[in-house]
C-alpha cells in the first residue's frame, strides 16, 4: 500500500516533465516531417513558463476555476494510474477535467469558444465509449478492472486484444485532438475557429490546461503501455511506435468534420471493439 502510494507520487512528479518532453519531441518530429528544424526540445516548457508569467485577465471567474479543476483532475487521474487503481475509476476522474474544460468554455458568450465547446462534447462522445470498451476488454481478459492484475499476466494483452489496441489508438487521437480530429481546438501552429475550446483561456489558465494536456498524454500512453506489460523494452518500443504513428497520422491527414467522426469513425470502431470482445467472450 505504502509502496503503491510512493509509486503514485513519483509518477505524479515525473509525469509533467515527461509530458512536456514528449510534447517537445512531437513538435520536433513534426517539423522534421515538414522538412524544418523545429523548435528546441524544451520549447513546451518555455511556452508554459511564459504563459504563467502573463498578467492574468479573464472574461469571467469560471474560466479560472475550470482550469484549476481540469489540472486537478488530470493530476489525480495520473496519480491513480501510477497508484495502480481501478481503470474505470481513472476514466471517471479523467472525465471531470474534460467536462469542466467544456463548462468553462461554454460560460463565455463568444462564438469561437461556444462552437469549440460543442465540438469538444462531440469528441468526448466519440472517445468515451471506445475507452470503456477497451477497459471492459481488459477486464474480460484479466478478470479485473485493476491495473495490478494486468502486470500479473504472462502474455502481453496486445495478443488477445489487438483490435481494442487499435480502438485505443483512435481514442487517443480524438482525446489528444490530433489531426484528423483536431476539431474542437488544435495545437501549436495550427488554428481552428481561432483556438476553439481554448480561445478564452489565456495566460496562466492556458498554461494550466497545457500542463493538464501533458498529463493526459502521459496517462493515455500509460494506458497503451498496459498492452505490453511483460517487458520494459517491449513496452517502450510499443509506446514509441504508437506515438510515432500518431504523429504520422497527425501530419498526413486533414481535419475532418464531426459528422465524419461520429458516423465513419466511432461507429465502425465500436463494431470492431465488439468483434474483439465477442472473440474473447466466446473463447
Amino acid at each position: 500500500m505504502i509502496a503503491k502510494l510512493f509509486f503514485g507520487l513519483i509518477g505524479l512528479a515525473v509525469a509533467p516533465v515527461l509530458g512536456g518532453i514528449i510534447a517537445g519531441l512531437d513538435r520536433r518530429v513534426t517539423a522534421r516531417m515538414q522538412s524544418r528544424f523545429g523548435p528546441p526540445l524544451l520549447q513546451p516548457f518555455y511556452d508554459v513558463l511564459k504563459l504563467l508569467g502573463k498578467r492574468p485577465s479573464a472574461v469571467n471567474a469560471w474560466l479560472v476555476l475550470c482550469s484549476y479543476l481540469t489540472l486537478m483532475s488530470s493530476a489525480l487521474a495520473v496519480f491513480l494510474f501510477f497508484f495502480q487503481a481501478d481503470l474505470l475509476l481513472i476514466f471517471f476522474v479523467m472525465t471531470i477535467g474534460a467536462v469542466f474544460q467544456v463548462m468553462g468554455a461554454l460560460s463565455v458568450n463568444s462564438p469561437f469558444s461556444q462552437v469549440g465547446a460543442q465540438r469538444e462534447l462531440l469528441q468526448m462522445l466519440a472517445y468515451e465509449p471506445l475507452i470503456i470498451m477497451v477497459f471492459v476488454g481488459i477486464a474480460l481478459k484479466t478478470g479485473s478492472f485493476s491495473i495490478e492484475n494486468i502486470y500479473a499476466l504472462e502474455q502481453p494483452l496486445l495478443f488477445s486484444l489487438p483490435i481494442l489496441f487499435l480502438a485505443l489508438g483512435v481514442a487517443l487521437t480524438i482525446k489528444l485532438r490530433k489531426s484528423p480530429f483536431d476539431i474542437s481546438t488544435s495545437h501549436h501552429g495550427h488554428q481552428e475557429i481561432v483556438r476553439g475550446l481554448l480561445t478564452e483561456y489565456t495566460g496562466p489558465q492556458l498554461a494550466m490546461l497545457e500542463i493538464a494536456h501533458w498529463l493526459d498524454v502521459v496517462l493515455i500512453l500509460g494506458l497503451c503501455s498496459l498492452f505490453w506489460s511483460t517487458g520494459m523494452i517491449g513496452m517502450l518500443v510499443l509506446l514509441a511506435a504508437t506515438y510515432f504513428v500518431e504523429m504520422l497520422v497527425d501530419n498526413i491527414s486533414s481535419r475532418l468534420t464531426w459528422q465524419w467522426m461520429l458516423t465513419r469513425v466511432l461507429a465502425p470502431t465500436m463494431v470492431l471493439c465488439l468483434v474483439n470482445i465477442l472473440w474473447l467472450y466466446t473463447l
Binding site: R27, A31, Q34, S35, R36, F37, G38, P39, P40, Q43, Y46, D47, K50, L51, H188, G189, Q191, V194, R195, L198, T199, E200, T202, L206
Partner: peptide, 23 residues
Amino acid sequence: CLTPVYDVERFGIINVGNPKQAD
C-alpha cells in the same frame, strides 16, 4: 516566414490567431 525555408518555429515563434494568447 512560416514556411520551411525560414522556419520561424526554430525561435519558438508561432502564429496564433488570438490576440489574447499572443505576445
